[in-house]
Design a protein around this nucleic acid. Structure first.
Lengths: 368, 368
DNA sequence: TTGTACGCGTTATCAT
DNA sequence: ATGATAACGCGTACAA
């Protein structure tokens, strides 16, 4: 028993292949009665057009590509891709487009990966994620003539459309939240500033500080990993003029930082406030729970997919509104008045035991 | 400027299309000199065979599929898929196979998703993950005649080959580790026992307890989420005969449980020991760091991909050895002698302040 | 080695 | 307006 083809259906319905094709893609030129009969027969025979044949004949891959250039170790800790891909899928699957995924360990292979996807005609367009400040991909894709959507904040001279949740508002909100609580020494642990989202979050932090007229605060460039977050935190806590708050560029580093603080006997948020970015599942369940920035990554994926399909089909771009990144205040941030006083007296003044008592007291209250 | 095809290359090299095809797939029947010249010309013209045309002519999709049936919320917190996919890719990409990924929100859509992938001829085979104890997919795929590899521990009457890291040894090692430390009341927080990995981990826990002759201990069925882990932990800690150790079926629930314990003023590992499963990136950086089970998910992906391609090509199965899941001992587990004593006296005996002092003392030591 | 049929829909051309 | 016919897309594979 071989696969049923359009020919079989045509034969069974007593019409030509063309008629079947027209009926299926409901295009004019087929009498309503005939169309009905054809669809009926096709349904009975359980025929679905072969996407390989279709792809060849329409000169389209009927698929789009996503290349992720990350070592497996850093990929598994990132909550972004699973949600983003889930978002893409909601749009792609209903439009009959497949998602071809490639994972490569570094940026060099990434370029050849895009090139191959294009040369082999596997995809009609691609998503570009994890953009670097100096990224070769947009130019390569322009040269290849392969439609692309940049996933992330728009770059200056964007040849390709960018679809992204701007991360600045979230970071700015975090800083403003801390300022409102009375903090004046708000440090930052950034991602690699060679990456667009590492850079933009650092920039947002600096801008927010400038706006409020606060003096420069220390920052450490890290790489989004737990290990780098821990190291950066140790560095900041060893400073003469220790910050009373640290804004991290992601949750993973923030969580590692939180642990470092606890291990050093520093009370959070009493003596040190911490904010993250991503709103990881576990963030709300930490002790203390993590104040962080959340964004609609699922919607982001939907928007990116929609935009790419428009680009591929030469349709005009519709504006897809995305909710801005939003600060979620939890218990890793708190009033600075207290924090200030405590930080000032922590070395000698108040005893370590007393500080711990206060910390536990607060936890009890949080539990209700 | 239109795409260059095999015809263009043949013309330029002064040979027939067939010759070019033979040369490219280095098959006999072409003189070495001619072959050389053809490849030379093809290289200069930058020609890569169109995978759509190839797919149609060889009656193969040249792609394999992975369908993930998870709501986005639970998908983003799972460290498994990113690593697993990275593992798949190392094998697939070098074999010229594309990975078609589908994400659907529930099990019902999952079935139609596989069916469509097959009917449209998009893939030559698929991976089946997140197997349920009573799962309809193996039968469906057998009926469709679509090659499949079950990702996970082998089921009884496996029609399809299963490739998986057995999770039992890891859980058993965790229990034995706790027993060796002197624990006698070792509870378990499981995943859904309707899922194979939820079931098998619970089973492993029970088996390990039986082996050591310990009495039945309480367990709570949860759903792998942080929220359910927290709830289960509260339940266990409210028991009359409170466990001194809890083995969780994944890190996310374990981390939530850890926070619950801390919030309730219960010292970990002093009064309660905790183990997870997955070895999430953050696990090593928690305070206390989490004892958990690690497995080579990347290698698992490689093995699954290798096996599926063998199945598709009707090649004999080669045995791909996978390292067994391994316990990683960190500081969320500790001597039970102490734990026992403390648990017994915690209500009245030793004061809360004193317990906190000891906890902090230990943290200091961990930091070195 | 070459010529050509084939895989399977889509679409342009043509006849009714 | 309906529907049939045939060319096309691009490699692969077999007969010549």
């Amino acid at each position: 028993m071989t696969r049923t083809t359009i020919k079989d259906v045509a034969l069974a319905a007593g019409v030509s292949k063309g008629a079947v094709s027209f009926a299926l893609n409901n295009r004019p030129g087929v009498a309503p009665a005939t169309r009905e009969r054809i669809l009926q027969v096709a349904g009975e025979m359980g025929w679905t057009p072969s996407s390989r044949a279709r792809a060849l004949s329409v000169s389209r891959a009927l698929a789009v590509g996503l290349v992720i250039a990350r070592p497996a170790a850093t990929l598994r800790a990132d909550p972004f891709f699973p949600s983003f891909i889930a978002g893409l899928e909601t749009v792609l699957s209903e439009r009959g487009q497949a998602l071809v995924l490639q994972v490569v360990p570094d940026r060099q292979l990434e370029l050849s990966s895009y090139r191959r996807l294009c040369d082999e005609g596997r995809v009609d367009g691609v998503f570009v994620t994890d953009l670097f400040v100096d990224d070769a991909r947009p130019a390569l894709l322009a040269e290849l003539g392969l439609p692309a959507v940049i996933v992330g904040p728009a770059l200056g001279d964007a040849f390709w459309p960018a679809v992204g949740v701007d991360d600045a508002p979230g970071i700015i909100a975090a800083v403003e939240h801390l300022v409102a609580l009375g903090h004046t020494n708000i440090a930052h642990v950034s991602g690699p500033t060679s990456m667009v989202h590492g850079h933009s979050r650092r920039q947002a932090w600096a801008t927010a500080l400038d706006r409020t007229g606060l003096p420069r605060a220390p920052w450490v460039e890290s790489d989004f990993s737990a290990e780098s977050g821990a190291r950066a935190t140790h560095h900041l806590l060893d400073l003469e003029d220790r910050p009373t708050a640290i804004v991290y560029a992601n949750d993973l580093m923030a969580m590692a930082g939180l642990s470092v603080a606890i291990a050093r006997g520093i009370d959070v948020p009493g003596e040190l406030c911490i904010t993250g970015y991503d709103d990881t599942e576990i963030a709300a369940y930490l002790q203390p729970s993590l104040t962080t920035v959340t964004s609609d990554v699922l919607g982001w994926g939907r928007a990116a997919a929609t935009r790419l399909l428009q680009l591929i089909d030469d349709e005009p771009a519709t504006d897809i509104p995305l909710p801005a990144a939003r600060l979620v205040v939890r218990s890793s941030t708190g009033p600075a008045a207290t924090a200030q006083r405590r930080a000032a007296t922590s070395q000698r003044g108040r005893s370590a035991t007393e500080r711990r008592r206060m910390a536990t007291e607060r936890r009890r209250m949080e539990m209700q």
